[in-house]
Design a protein around this nucleic acid. Structure first.
Length: 263
DNA sequence: CTCGACTCCTGTTAGC
DNA sequence: TGCTAACAGGAGTCGA
């Protein structure tokens, strides 16, 4: 599913849309327009304009517009960006690999004949104008040790739940969280404030390598834990049957043998 | 402020 | 074979 890694890949694709004149906007799915934004407002804001930069904060993709409000794009768990009919990612966990234009929920058509589309079968993503970027925590790719200690490794809530809280650190989804905790040997159910300095150091180190690995390999479904994230799966490190729990409202797989930090 | 529970969406898949 | 129900999770809302 799209997590910070996929959105970064979408951002790179969206850079090809910069500087091109927008001729028309397809925003016919009113449900997909969020935060009070309407199809009419999107058409009015974008027609005749150009995108000047493609930025990302966590799972939010922001396209700056030469005049007028910024465009915010969210992808839920099945959304993709398609620029000029080329999708930067062709396989997405929990989504469909079918290429069905009926799932285009929003599209910007350029006067050169190209386009930027959001294709989202399950419609959990959305489009908005002037999204509240400050409501999100520091981005996972650049988050500092100090910020993690201040915002994430605090309190009694399970560390897994903390990691999914986009207001504390932005861009980590279910698969990245499970993979990093698994590599770092941290129990997902451990109280966030209970992780010692060694565990926190391991977490930071593995977060950076997981993000780099996932970027290199093409998405958040390419982890070493991923093939075992199913009922009856065993730990790829030590062969122990994995534990399957719901933590922070999300299905969580972990190894009861080696993920013991914080227990 | 914190935090768990609930709700939204719909393609896929397991199971009868 | 064909149908139904469970499942997936990002994100917003609500209430204790």
């Amino acid at each position: 599913m799209p997590e910070g890694v996929e959105i970064e890949i979408y951002r790179l694709a969206a850079e090809r849309a910069l500087g091109r004149v927008i001729a028309t906007v397809d925003a016919n799915d009113g449900w997909f327009c969020k935060d009070g934004t309407t199809p009419e407002a999107l058409v009015a804001a974008l027609s005749g304009a150009t995108f000047t930069s493609a930025r990302r904060r966590g799972k939010l993709l922001v396209l700056d517009v030469d005049h007028g409000p910024r465009l915010g794009l969210r992808f839920g768990m099945t959304g993709r960006t398609i620029v000029d009919d080329a999708a930067p990612i062709d396989s997405l966990e929990y989504s469909s690999d079918r290429n069905d234009p009926a799932w285009d929920r929003f599209a910007v058509l350029f006067d050169d004949g190209g386009s930027l589309r959001i294709r989202d079968p399950r419609r959990l993503g959305g489009v908005s104008l002037d999204p509240d970027e400050e409501a999100l925590g520091m981005d996972a790719f650049s988050v500092t040790a100090k910020e993690l200690d201040r915002r994430v490794f605090v309190g009694e809530v399970a560390i897994k739940g903390r990691l999914l809280d986009q207001a504390r650190v932005a861009g980590i989804g279910n698969l990245i969280a499970d993979e990093v905790l698994w590599r770092a040997g941290i129990d997902p159910a451990a109280p966030a404030g209970s992780i010692d300095a060694k565990g926190r150091r391991r977490f930071r180190s593995h977060l950076q390598t997981v993000l780099a690995d996932f970027m290199r390999d093409g998405g958040s479904h390419t982890g070493r834990l991923q093939p075992a994230r199913e009922r009856g799966g065993t730990c790829p490190k030590d062969g122990t049957p994995l534990e399957r729990r719901t933590i922070g409202g999300r299905t969580t797989f972990s190894c009861p043998l080696h993920q013991r930090s914080g227990r």
